[in-house]
Design a protein around this nucleic acid. Sequence first.
DNA 1: CGATATCATGCAATATCGTGCAACATCAAG
DNA 2: CTTGATGTTGCACGATATTGCATGATATCG
Lengths: 258, 258
Amino acid sequence: MHMLTRQRKELLIARLKRDGQIVAKSLSEELGLSEDTIRRDLRELAAEGLLQRVHGGALPLELPASPAMANFAQRQQLSSDAKPAIARAAAAMIAPGQVVFIDGGTTAVQLARALPPTLRCTVVTHSPSIAVELAEHPLIEVILIGGRLFKHSIVAMGPSALEAIAQIRTDIFFMGVCSLHPLQGISTGDYEEAGIKRAIAAASTKTVVLASPEKLDTASPFQIAPLERIGAIVVNAGVPASLLAPYRALGIEVALAP
Amino acid sequence: MHMLTRQRKELLIARLKRDGQIVAKSLSEELGLSEDTIRRDLRELAAEGLLQRVHGGALPLELPASPAMANFAQRQQLSSDAKPAIARAAAAMIAPGQVVFIDGGTTAVQLARALPPTLRCTVVTHSPSIAVELAEHPLIEVILIGGRLFKHSIVAMGPSALEAIAQIRTDIFFMGVCSLHPLQGISTGDYEEAGIKRAIAAASTKTVVLASPEKLDTASPFQIAPLERIGAIVVNAGVPASLLAPYRALGIEVALAP
DNA sequence: CGATATCATGCAATATCGTGCAACATCAAG
DNA sequence: CTTGATGTTGCACGATATTGCATGATATCG
């Protein structure tokens, strides 16, 4: 089979994205080509600024070591100031003794951190990160939802998670990272994740969306729920009122985080 | 699989950031390379001003000011190199494709870290810390057991945890912190924890005890299982043979961690 | 002070690299 | 159809990088 040069280069890029590394020798064997050809490709791709050439193969452009870590660190860096503010505003919504569900995601971790040490309540979560974070809290009881670990957002998923969620009723569901749009409602980029969030929302009296600024007025492929199902949105105070008007018009409470 | 040199250096940096230290000998064993190579890397990284070279390994440049990590780092400093050594020896017991249960505790976290990046297997755990740790591993599938979070050892407990455990069969159970005594068998200080560990052991073909040196030849109130149920014990190589004789006499495999 | 571990350096074996070049395919113009 | 230009691929070869080992120096610990 003859592979076009351009195709091969695209394959290299894809492979680099998937594996986080390219080893010239391995790929040459896999594709049945000489190492020279692969090296040539890598050199040219490096010249185009599409990857970073290193001895033995190639690496992605960015410096960070592990790809999973890189994503996470990146996301954590995004709007670093806004998230703690949102987290504090959300934490203030919890009344003593309530049972709340905290979603996965970096904003949610901030929320866990923002819970006052004097607050006695029960937190249900399918995020091991949240559980670890709250393990040091003196008063909060933590219920961990188990299941298959979805590595992208580091939360438990799958049938057993759904089953466990169905057995619990919570007062508030603090929903993490997802897209928010006046017409599309709440949506996310993973099909299964959408299903899980929908199940949690269904098991909760009230759903509160933690809306990092960059997720406002965007839509993703898989809808979690229409806007009517949302009880409140927590956003940063800097957001223009025009973006928020559609939600207020629907009677959704919009909490501004200072 | 050959790791690219550049990647290895990034790994060193990441490891240094995470553990706050690098021991050249340990890493050379973990990565299957000569100590010379690691030392060379450390020397070069030190020349680039990315770390501080010290006898035996390397340290970060400045004092890390992370308050959250302080607690954890403290615990890890105890018995500095014994636990990683035990963890590496235990990791070597896992065959590709196996399903293993990893317990909670600091030694178990070390085990999760010691799993080679090329190992493809399934890890079941009731410890959110382990789950978070393994979220970065590219190949390992993680099954998280849910339940009420027991804050002392940061693991899920309670009926739903027991129920989930009963539904899974694992090849090896790596049991963490507990007392080990020739007559009393394995025991621990918490009644419910003993029950959980017993259930996990019952669901596993083989039980391997990660025996931190200070837990050898001690007993706690609640027995988990008699010695006969143990398949192997992993201990540090420095432990006197007299302490290990009783277990060997029972036909229990004793793995010495170098 | 002696035993042991760790280190830096030099060196040899191997792997990888970049360049030049020839063989071949593809394509466009004649 | 022919011809020359262009692009692609594999190979040769000298240059460079990487790794492990040997060796003597230095540090650590009891």
